[in-house]
Design a protein around this nucleic acid. Sequence first.
DNA 1: TAGAAAACAAACCAGTTGGTATGTAAAATA
DNA 2: TATTTTACATACCAACTGGTTTGTTTTCTA
Lengths: 211, 211
Amino acid sequence: MTNMIETSTRTERKPDRTRRVILEAAFREIYRHGYQGTRLDDVVAITGLTKGALYHHFPNKQALGYAVVDEVIRGMIHQVWLEPLADAEDPLAHMIHFLENMGSLIGDDIITYGCPLNNLAQEMSPLDEGFRLRLDHLYQEWRQGLQRALERAREQGHIRKDIDCGPLAAFVLASLAGCIGVAKNAQSMDQLQICGRGLVDYLRSLRAPMN
Amino acid sequence: MTNMIETSTRTERKPDRTRRVILEAAFREIYRHGYQGTRLDDVVAITGLTKGALYHHFPNKQALGYAVVDEVIRGMIHQVWLEPLADAEDPLAHMIHFLENMGSLIGDDIITYGCPLNNLAQEMSPLDEGFRLRLDHLYQEWRQGLQRALERAREQGHIRKDIDCGPLAAFVLASLAGCIGVAKNAQSMDQLQICGRGLVDYLRSLRAPMN
DNA sequence: TAGAAAACAAACCAGTTGGTATGTAAAATA
DNA sequence: TATTTTACATACCAACTGGTTTGTTTTCTA
């Protein structure tokens, strides 16, 4: 019935796409200026839409922020970290390779603006419990993915048998966030590599002693 | 109508003290809400002063923020970290003891609000080069203090001779910031201890092998 | 001790911000 | 096809915010 292929120049209505456009613009602004520093006027200006569109899809700024966490940032972490890690045959080698080439694998934004998840967590966790719960949930997903990968590495004999991979995953994640934060403050890719190498050294030191 | 009432409201004038009061109130608000989330009206409300006083001592919000970094936060890091570390006879043992008892040694604020320096760095470094330079300078002071302590530990034979204490100090600092950040987001002292133990394990693994 | 300067107080303002009320064209539905 | 619902656009505002201006009281100084 309404199945037409004609892409007319009329104002096509694609609510899902409009919603996506708003979400990604909001993510960009939040990533660059923080949640509190983000102005809704700037978000709509980037999209070329208007506030009417924004407030049609989201009831208020807070709901928009929550959706950015649940949909945009969550997707990025799964895509960049969790899925490749789950697919890797040699998880430890994959992690080390990733840590040693973060700059080229992720892009300069990691130096300029840091980690989107950690940024938002540091800013909003003490201020808004809704943010905190969502961000904490995401961290737990991330940590569990890391833990599973480390346990696989342990089964492969790349990590000593006596290591508890739960706390280890927590520490690795914390260190990684710290390294990115330091690099961001120094605005220096070198700093990221120096700190990242410290983490890699640590991971290597967990190898079972060769006999 | 001239000074008919010599009421006790004789406002005692202590400019240095007034400046201090403003600085500490500003620190408190920035620590809790971030720089962008801090309202000058709230700062003056806490002090019981007025904007006139604030703008007499500081030309604008930015200068007040800079002064908080240079005077308040810097003092705290020196007092809590650098001076005790420089005075410690066994720096490595001191560091480990500190990491294992951070919660009780520093206080609950570290869980609730995180690390004042790291918070401000993550928020403001990409937004304001003046902040970034001041915060980066402070980080370098901190890292150098750590490096000197680690080098002393190496001389004492508590750390392997082949370790380069510069990158190590950078990694330790990054990890520490990351651990505090994770604990803050989880609002959990347990998380701080779990992550902190990971860092302690790492430091212990640097010990020269016993023969 | 008189005048200048410093240290505050109080009122005010212009720009901004999140949010709303209302209008309207396109889809969905009947 | 007629009607309702969805998806936006437009215009607007009340509250707030950083900052200014002006006035008053204390302290310093010549």
